Amino acid sequence: MYDFVIEEINISNVNQLDDVKKFLKNFDLEFEENIDCTIVIKQGGKIVGTCSKSGNILKCFAIDSSMRGMGLSSKLVTWMNNKLFDQGVYHSFIFTKPENINIFTGVGYKLIQKVKEVALLETGVENINKHIKRIIEKYDLKNNKKAALVMNCNPFTWGHRYLIEKASLENEEVIIFIVEEDRSLFPFKYRYELVKQGVADLKNVKVVPGGEYIISSATFPNYFLRKKDDVLRIFTELDASIFGEYFCNELSINKRYVGEEPFCEVTQAYNETLSDTLEKYGVELEIVKRREFKGKAISASQVREVIKGGEISYLKNLVPDVTMKFLLSSEGKEIMEKIKYSTSPH
């Protein structure tokens, strides 16, 4: 009756992509980076709706206001989820504006969290409550008060060790969440193992994969883009509020430690938002002055710069033995070669 047609556009085709970007501008939306699939609904050759995805995250969703109530939202979401099913993916997220929440709860999505400008919902075989329950059981997390740290450790440095050790001395139990998203120069499997080995002597510390709900493309895409832009505060608040409402409440976390951030604007903004947001959940943020070497704060970015400059012997001043041993292994040498020729900040 309405002659609606769904088309997958060729995102490498400039003209097709420009049409989508122009349509999104009507809703104060921008076509985001790292999108791998975009579809549009057309009526009479004109775009009246669109949705994109990046991995298992649906985003850049918009429907012409004159077409509301005609089931276009369901058509777009169903098409995208069928695409994910074909790829063997059975859990997805969607970013949208808070005023659109009812649209997506009506097609099977469940709200995780909303802040003033954005809401995050999910559907599928996984959900945040199942995820946290699994963590509690797997890592035998008791119902006592805990401190937490969230770290990327790209790679594990003396600075990380110093911060963890301080938390260990000041608290009965400590959880370290290692960012699981594999968008760093050191892959997650190595970052995770280096931290586990590097804190094995601290018996009250448990090292846990961060999963999809802590500093991931779903909760905090700007962390990986390393861009300080207009939406940075939105996503830092979203990530911090998810951590406060779900992880702190369910895991009895009453304190979170972060290092003072003299280098990265994104991390500095994240720390500021963390402080404001966690306070609402009764969680204290402890900002710790970083360990220094020769008057300079030790950081993973400094380690990568030293590797880039080829000063391998200097690294023993910045990283523990476990990291040094890894860097000199065949896997470590391969990563160091990539770092030397990389333009990536992370």
Rank of each mutant, 00 (worst) to 15 (best):
N222Y: 10
T236E: 11
N249Y: 01
A218E: 03
A218I: 08
I253K: 00
P221G: 08
L251M: 15
F220M: 08
Y223A: 06
T219H: 09
T219W: 06
S252T: 04
I242F: 06
D239R: 06
D229L: 12
Y223W: 12
F220W: 07
R226H: 15
G244F: 01
I234K: 00
E245F: 12
C248L: 04
S241Q: 07
F247Y: 05
N254C: 12
I253W: 02
S217T: 13
S252D: 03
L225S: 13
C248A: 06
N254L: 07
I253P: 01
E245Y: 13
A240W: 01
R233V: 11
G244W: 00
N249V: 00
S252F: 05
F243K: 12
S241I: 05
L238W: 04
A218L: 08
S252I: 00
D239I: 07
S252K: 06
F235H: 09
S217L: 14
L238Q: 02
T219C: 10
E245C: 12
I242D: 05
K255L: 12
R226L: 15
Y223R: 10
S241F: 05
I242M: 06
A240P: 03
F243D: 09
C248M: 06
D229G: 15
N254Y: 11
V231W: 12
A218Y: 05
D239P: 07
T219A: 10
D239Q: 08
L238N: 04
L251P: 12
K228L: 15
A240Q: 03
C248S: 08
F247Q: 00
N249A: 03
L232Y: 06
R233T: 13
E250Y: 07
L238R: 02
S217G: 15
D230R: 11
S217A: 15
F235P: 05
E237C: 07
E250M: 09
S252N: 08
S252A: 04
D230W: 11
F247L: 02
Y223M: 06
D239E: 10
S217V: 13
D239N: 11
T236N: 13
N249G: 02
R226Y: 14
F247N: 01
L225E: 14
K255C: 14
N254Q: 11
A218C: 10
L238H: 02
S241P: 06
E250N: 11
F220S: 03
N254I: 10
F220D: 03
L232E: 07
C248K: 00
D229P: 11
N222V: 05
L232P: 04
P221N: 09
